[in-house]
Design a protein around this nucleic acid. Structure first.
Lengths: 345, 345
DNA sequence: CTGAAAGCGCTAACAT
DNA sequence: ATGTTAGCGCTTTCAG
């Protein structure tokens, strides 16, 4: 006993409606598309019959002519669930009320296999695609997309400004903001845990730290620096290296929240209390920032807004309106419980 | 300077290939679909030309004939990010390698507006849809879907077994397992935070608690009960009401992890230490369970598996294979750091 | 204002 | 083993 997809008396077509209304299919078409040159009476009648027959236009027939699929893709690389969901939310918010539908295309390794990503997009028969980091920064991807004529929106790109519809944020300014927060609290002995070196944002965030230090008349000279790769594990490892390194800073700047949480865990294991003995600040304001204890001081990346804007720009691109000015979104410093004044002020 | 969607010399069609190869379009079609009755030499040549021309079949033309869109929908109601992502992951895993693409369709209020949901699905021109709770349990939705002949897979349905392709779990047994865990630890003063009352699982999980209490010779009588709606905020609020209510239980059963985390946060704010003074257990084993501190004791709901199975069943339904036997998935109790023996245990 | 004809890219059903 | 014809459901000409 199972719902079978019974053929269902063939869906009504404009021909059915035309016959019933005693007009030509073209007239029905005109009515359905709100084109002019149809007598009001006919228009109403056709609409009534359409409703009665529960008519829905065949998207594929329309698409075949228009050479459009009315499908938009969203690619991303399995980062945190909250990031993914925010990305989707932004795109969907913009798409609400449009004919376009959203296809989700997580792709494991765009950096290693840009061609694979592009061929996935091709096969999906998309009208356009919203690219989230890191694919939004991969030149081979952008090139291939240009080559096949598929327009794209880019979320938080850090390079090739002007290619595609960009919704950017200022990594440098955001990083500067967190660093300044620490400096303002009185910290002068600050350790840094860097993100993955393939990600441009790692360098940009470092640049923000440099500027903040300079604003306080200091050379950029973190007491300790440790590489990481944006994963929590790398944060744990980096913090452990710092602890066993002998020189303890009074504060840590981690280039994302996951690593900051890792640092938090490592500190906890080592009996170092946060924020009393050590302040820790992250980056992103991802889900974990509020889950961690102490809650994490961080800067919010406006993901939903960027996704909405990138989608908006993509739509503009697709509708032929020539170029789309990049939009920049503001970060928000989130001061929470993982940072405090250093002990000896 | 913006990438415009330049027309791109018209995409190659089978006619182009046919001309180049000096064969008929139908032969090309045969080759592309791996049909027999084509000489090996011709086959190879056609394939070569197709590759050279970077040919990709026009999905809409194919769909127009086959009366298929090769689009599968996934509906859910904005619950926790990790739940959504796991749902998508399961569906996508099954769809990998198939021609079907996944369209995400979050819908705010299926319970209030089942027709709205169905018409959304209709408009999206789906071949089939995977329904996640609560829509997987809404009779009007199932009825409407049957009426329009759209096959569906159901994730964790709690009612109407046998309708559609079902991938179920035993909520009652899982809830019983967590409750028993608490009872085994020695807790007898247990508070409960319920999920959204529109979700059948809320009642089922309550039932599991009841059975566990009964197994310990107790009447079901939580010290305190508070309504929630599966969001973290509702968990915070519920816990705050419990705290200010005066009667403090030694343990809390929250009907999902998000609310459990909310309770954790509220307890922390109030200076109540978990698990020393208060044990908290969740439900789902979502992402946050391991992110929270202390890590959350919970039961794993096999969401990814269920989504994969529901999608698999849906595919079977669509391919005409008559009926699909429902699959049941097992829960797993995850004992972590948010539960311990009560103080005076 | 309305309609007839042609065709989007592909494939089923029949020839050959 | 290969080609021809017709047509999926709709919209674009272009004629009335």
């Amino acid at each position: 006993m199972t719902s079978s997809s019974k053929p269902d008396e063939k869906r009504a077509t404009i021909v059915d409606i035309a016959r019933r209304a005693g007009v030509s299919p073209k007239t029905v078409s005109r009515v359905m598309n709100d084109e002019p040159h149809v007598k009001q009476a006919v228009r109403e009648q056709v609409k009534a019959i359409a409703r009665e027959l529960n008519y829905h236009p065949n998207v594929m027939a329309q698409g075949l002519i228009a050479r459009k699929s009315y499908l938009i893709g969203l690619t991303y690389e399995r980062p945190s669930p909250s990031y993914v969901v925010e990305l989707q939310r932004g795109a969907l918010e913009r798409l609400a009320g449009e004919r376009y539908r959203l296809i989700v295309l997580p792709f494991a390794d765009a950096t290693q296999d840009p061609q694979g990503l592009v061929s996935l997009l091709r096969v999906a028969a998309l009208d356009g695609v919203v690219l989230a980091p890191p694919s939004s920064d991969l030149e081979p991807v952008l090139d291939a997309l240009d080559a096949i004529g598929m327009p794209y929106g880019r979320v938080a790109p850090r390079s090739f400004p002007g290619r595609g519809a960009c919704a950017t944020m200022d990594d440098v300014a955001a990083a500067r903001a967190v660093a300044e927060h620490l400096l303002r609290l009185g910290h002068r002995s600050i350790g840094v845990i860097y993100g993955h070196r393939d990600h441009i944002s790692s360098a940009l965030r470092r640049q923000g730290y440099v500027e903040a230090f300079a604003a306080y008349g200091l050379d950029y000279l973190p007491v300790v620096e440790q590489p990481g790769d944006f994963t929590r594990e790398s944060g744990v490892a980096a913090m452990q290296r710092i602890i066993s390194g002998g020189i303890m800073p009074t504060a840590i700047l981690a280039q994302n929240d996951d690593m900051a949480v890792g640092a938090l865990m490592a500190a906890r294991e080592a009996g170092i209390s946060v924020p009393e003995t050590l302040s820790i600040a992250g980056f992103d304001d991802s889900d974990v920032a509020r889950l961690a204890w102490p809650t994490l001081t961080t800067v919010r990346q406006p993901v939903v807004d960027m996704a909405r804007q990138a989608t908006d720009g993509l739509l503009a691109l697709m509708s032929g309106r020539g170029s789309v000015a990049p939009t920049t979104h503001e970060h928000v410093l989130c001061m929470r419980h993982s940072t405090a004044q250093p002990r000896h002020g």
